[in-house]
Amino acid sequence: MSKVETRAIAEDLVVVPLRHYGLWIGTAAALAILALIVKALATNPAFDWPTVGKYLFHASIMRGLAQTLLLTVTIMVLAIIIGTVVAIMRLSPSRILNAFASAYIWFFRGAPALIQLIFWFNLSLIVREISLTLPFIGTIFTVKTNDVMTPFVAAVVALSLHEAGYMAEIVRAGIKSVPGGQTEAAGSLGMNHRLILRRITLPQAMRFIVPPTGNETINLLKTTSLVTMIAVNDLLYAAQSIYARTFETIPLLIVVAFWYLFVVTILSICQHYIEQYYGRSDQQAGAARGILHRAFKIGRVAQPA
């Protein structure tokens, strides 16, 4: 075939796209299942939507939600602080500090959260009193363990120590992800250790620390529902106390799920903006997209190369 002929054919021919029959069948099946779910939700009386509406903004549900949020924020802040300290210990040249940090992570990350929670709540079985005694001065104060270790305190202590085990590994991985050349270049410009950590290493480590920390926060929000086991008045506990009286179990569980999903959605959007802030050096000019796309990656499946 001559070159001229080839060109002529290429101009005339119509491209017929490949038909993806499997894709069509799959889509049809998904739509059918969706329709069934919607029908069940709408028609099954057990969902009892009027009751869901009645309790959605109920005062005790709101108090429970506030308690859940307070727990999540307090525990996460403590976990980030403890985790960063443990991470720096793990990266230190001292073998003792290193071993101590490794043991911490091994234990507090390894033992189940629920067991740690019940353990701290029952601390008074091991230690009856907590007191500070100094030599030559005597006892400064003494308190009964049961007075200090309220359900809320037990929840904060147990879950922040547990969460710090995860955070320590996240922070350590973040710091290690920054190439050594960055530290050397900063050193050759006369910057000292503290300046290098604050201005060069940590800002670059944040790009690796933020996404998993966001996941941990979302995870923790839901893990706090474990505290119902030790009678902390959180969102789930509030719902349980209502349906224990009224037997409207399913509607109240829907209320609880709604609020968890609502908070998770807000957190995801916040996480996205924080990631964008620390990843701004990766951006190509004109890469900005609509908020829906940025928050949920909706709008386009394939990225152009």
């Binding site: 190439p179 050349g181 960055q182 050397e184 270049a185 900063a186 060069i200 800002p203 670059q204």
Partner: peptide, 9 residues
């Protein structure tokens, strides 16, 4: 440096 080592952030 051989690998530039500009502060990437």
């Amino acid at each position: 440096f051989q690998s530039f080592n500009l502060f990437s952030h």
